[in-house]
């Protein structure tokens, strides 16, 4: 918008101004490179012969291309089980979370609802207060959710942040549409599902993304609440793989014995990186499609919130 204006009218641009523009482009390009480089490096290493990795780890393209690391992972039962667990948890958590937050946010965005002050206080309390790790653990134990996948699904379904994002979006919807539906005698569930829901796609997409990413990536709840390793999500399995490697790094000195170990560890490295790639793949596949939406959804939410 500014661009158009500057074309038509000539404003004084100093030499500093031009330098700033150039430096700005250079700086942001470097930032973007730093953000993307490790990701590319990981993909390249995972597809390379590990002897090549030993020679020079800083690659952006696979050297002596091999998929042996991937073959190893695909044959691993534990990996597949955790993958399926994670998919199940993420899908159910996202759907339930969307429903819970949306159903709560809609009445909060309506003029007609009474006691909104009270409900808002509940939401704020939800945002600022946390009973702590141990009371939460005892509560989960009391509810009988320990060592079940539900412990990863249910507790995070309602979150104040997601609800507030949805509320601010829904408040902006043209009220005439809802009034018209009400005059036509549409019931509340009808208005919600046939009028409001189709208009809410952007905010649903962004909240879905928040929920899905959170659930896909988190290992903390699983570490606390789930002992049975058959129920572990991928993040926790990855963490165990990583944990074994860090102790190797700690113990590795420079004597020949350690060097041999280091070689083994680096072979582990290609496998680790391959696991990393496979476990991030679904999120990376969804990301470009949702990006459009979440920028829009969050924007509306944050400008007003």
């Amino acid at each position: 918008m500014v661009k158009e204006k500057t074309k038509n009218t000539r404003y004084k641009t100093s030499i500093w101004d031009k330098m700033f523009v150039v430096l700005n482009y250079v700086f942001l390009t470097i930032v973007a490179f730093i953000m993307i480089y490790p990701v590319i490096n990981v993909i390249a290493v995972s597809l390379s012969n590990y002897q090549e990795y030993l020679k020079s780890p800083a690659m952006m393209w696979p050297k002596k291309f091999t998929v042996s690391a991937y073959e190893l992972i695909i044959k691993n039962d534990k990996f597949w089980r955790s993958y399926i667990n994670t998919i199940f948890v993420t899908v159910v958590h996202t759907l339930l979370g969307l429903a819970t937050n949306f159903l709560f946010a809609w009445p909060m965005a309506r003029k007609e609802t009474k006691g909104k002050g009270f409900f808002m206080a509940l939401i704020i309390f939800n945002m600022v207060f946390n009973a702590g790790m141990i009371p939460n653990y005892l509560n989960i134990q009391m509810l009988g959710l320990l060592d079940t996948l539900w412990v990863l699904i249910l507790p995070g379904c309602f979150t104040a942040f997601n609800c507030v994002v949805m509320m601010s979006f829904l408040r902006e919807l043209p009220y005439e549409l809802i009034e018209a539906a009400m005059v036509d005698g549409g019931s509340e569930p009808y208005i919600l599902s046939k009028v409001v829901l189709p208009l809410s796609k952007p905010v649903l997409a962004s909240v879905a993304l928040f929920l899905a990413v959170g659930s896909w990536n988190s290992y903390f709840s699983a570490q606390i609440y789930i002992r049975d390793s058959d129920l572990w999500p991928i993040a926790l399995v990855l963490k165990e793989i990583l944990a074994s490697a860090t102790t190797d790094i700690l113990e590795g000195g420079m004597d020949p014995m350690a060097l041999m170990e280091a070689e083994q560890q680096i072979q582990e490295k290609t496998i680790q990186y391959a696991t990393v790639v496979v476990s991030t793949l679904p999120i990376m596949c969804v990301y470009p499609f949702l990006q459009k939406h979440f920028a829009k959804g969050v924007m509306v939410g944050s400008v007003k919130g």
Binding site: V42, L238, L242, A245, S279, T280, Y287
Partner: peptide, 15 residues
């Protein structure tokens, strides 16, 4: 990077 889990970020960083 926001979409990459901490486990993976730390794996990359240690590497």
């Amino acid at each position: 990077p926001h979409f990459i889990s901490w486990v993976i970020v730390i794996t990359i960083v240690t590497g």
